[in-house]
Design a protein around this nucleic acid. Structure first.
Lengths: 206, 206
DNA sequence: TGCATTATTGTACTGAGACCAATAATAGCC
DNA sequence: GGCTATTATTGGTCTCAGTACAATAATGCA
C-alpha cells in the first residue's frame, strides 16, 4: 500500500514508531524498569519477537533520536571548510547538530528523565551512544590534521567534547519547560573544551 | 582467625580477590561473554549466590580497581590548597590519582582489553564508573567556587575531564607493554581541557 | 548454653536476549 | 491463475543474569 513501492515481500505490519509509542505510554505509567518487552508488544498488538525486529535491546527504545543525530553530526562535520581551526569547526558542527534536534526528535531518555525512572538504565546503556558520537568526532579531528603533525589528540578531544555536550543535554532536560534552547546549554558547555584543545595547537605552532 | 578482630558472626570463607582471580583466569580462557557466573564460583569453590555477596553484577569484576580510585580522587581533591585555580588543582589531583594506580590495581577491563573480548561489555557497564568519578569532581568544582559566582560550569567540566582521562586510559591499554607510564597519557589528555575551563574563569575575572 | 550476628547456601522465579524453524503476505514471473 | 523468491511475523525453546527469600552454618558474647 504505502512506502512499499518496488519492494518485494510481506508488508510491515508494525513500525519503530508504533513500538516507541506503546513503550512510552507504559514507561510513563509503570517506569522503564517496571515494564517488560512483552507488555510493550502486547499494547502494540504484535508478538514479543517482533520487538527484536525493530530494536536490538529494550534500552534502544530510549535512544532512537540519538542515532539520527549521529548522522547529522557526520554531515555537519563534512561540510566544514578545510584547514580552518579544527576544534572551532567541531564546535560549530555540534551546535548545528543540537539546533537540528527539534523537541520531537529528542530521545525519550532525555526528555522523560524524571518521570520514567530512567536514570539507572541510562548509566548502563548510554555509553554506547556516547561512543558512537565520539568516534565520528574523533575520525574528523584525526583526518583534519592529516597533513600537519597531529597536535590535538583526537580521541581525548572527541571524548571530552561529547561528554560536555551530554552533560549539557542532561542539564537542559532537568531544567524542565520554560528553559532556554538546548543549543545554548551545549554552547556554554563545549566552548571551553574546544578552545582548550585549540590552544594546544596554537601554542605549538607559534 | 585473621582480620576478624572484634567482629561478630561467621568468618568470611571467600573474598573479592578470590573471585576476581578465578574470573580473570576464565575470562582469558573463554572471554568475558563466554563465561558464566556459575563457572566463576565453581572455580573459586563457592556457590553461585556467594558471588552476589561480593559483586552486584558480573561486570563489577572488571571494574573493582576504579572504585578504589574514586576514593583516591576524593582524597586528593580535598587535600588541594584553597582558593587556587580550580581546574589546575583538579588536574593535579587527577594526575596524582593516576600515579597511584599501580599496575596491579589497574582494572581488568583496561589491562585485558584485547584478550578478554571485553569491549562490548565495557560500553554497557563503564558509564556507571565514569559517572561516579565525574560526580566526585563535579562536587569539588562546585564547592570550590561557592563564594564567588560560579564561572566554571561544574558538571560539564567534570564530565569532559573524566572523559579525556578515560580516553587516555584506553590508549594506554592499547599501547601494550613498553609504553610510557599511564600518568603521561592522562596528562596530555586532560591538560587542554583543564586549561580551557580555567580560561573561562580568567577571561571573566580580568 | 543460648542468643544475636554475619556468611554461605539452596530453591525458585522473572525477564532479557539469542536461536531456529514455521508460517504468512507480497511482488514478479511463467 | 499458479509458482517462487523474498520479507515480516510468529511460536517455541533455551541460556543466563539478577532478585528474593528462607534455611543453615559459624562465630562472639552474655
Amino acid at each position: 500500500m504505502t512506502a512499499h513501492e518496488g519492494r518485494v515481500g510481506r508488508r510491515r505490519a508494525s513500525s519503530r514508531a508504533m513500538l516507541e509509542e506503546a513503550a512510552c505510554e507504559l514507561f510513563l505509567e509503570q517506569t522503564y524498569a517496571g515494564t517488560t518487552i512483552e507488555q510493550i508488544t502486547q499494547r502494540a498488538g504484535v508478538s514479543r519477537n517482533t520487538f527484536f525486529n525493530y530494536f536490538a535491546a529494550k534500552s534502544d527504545v530510549l535512544w532512537s533520536g540519538v542515532d539520527d543525530s549521529v548522522e547529522t553530526l557526520a554531515r555537519e562535520l563534512s561540510n566544514l571548510p578545510r584547514g580552518a581551526h579544527v576544534m572551532l569547526g567541531v564546535r560549530d558542527a555540534l551546535l548545528a547538530t543540537a539546533t537540528q534536534l527539534t523537541p520531537g526528535a529528542i530521545p525519550l531518555a532525555i526528555t522523560q528523565w524524571e518521570t520514567m525512572g530512567v536514570a539507572e538504565e541510562l548509566q548502563s546503556s548510554g555509553l554506547a551512544r556516547f561512543l558512537r558520537l565520539a568516534s565520528v568526532l574523533e575520525r574528523h579531528v584525526a583526518a583534519a590534521q592529516l597533513g600537519s603533525p597531529a597536535r590535538v589528540p583526537a580521541q581525548p578531544a572527541a571524548f571530552a567534547v561529547i561528554a560536555a555536550a551530554a552533560s549539557a543535554a542532561g542539564a537542559w532536560a532537568r531544567a524542565g519547560i520554560g528553559r532556554d534552547p538546548l543549543v545554548d546549554y551545549v554552547a556554554a558547555a563545549i566552548t571551553p573544551v574546544c578552545s582548550g584543545f585549540e590552544q594546544v595547537l596554537g601554542s605549538a605552532s607559534r
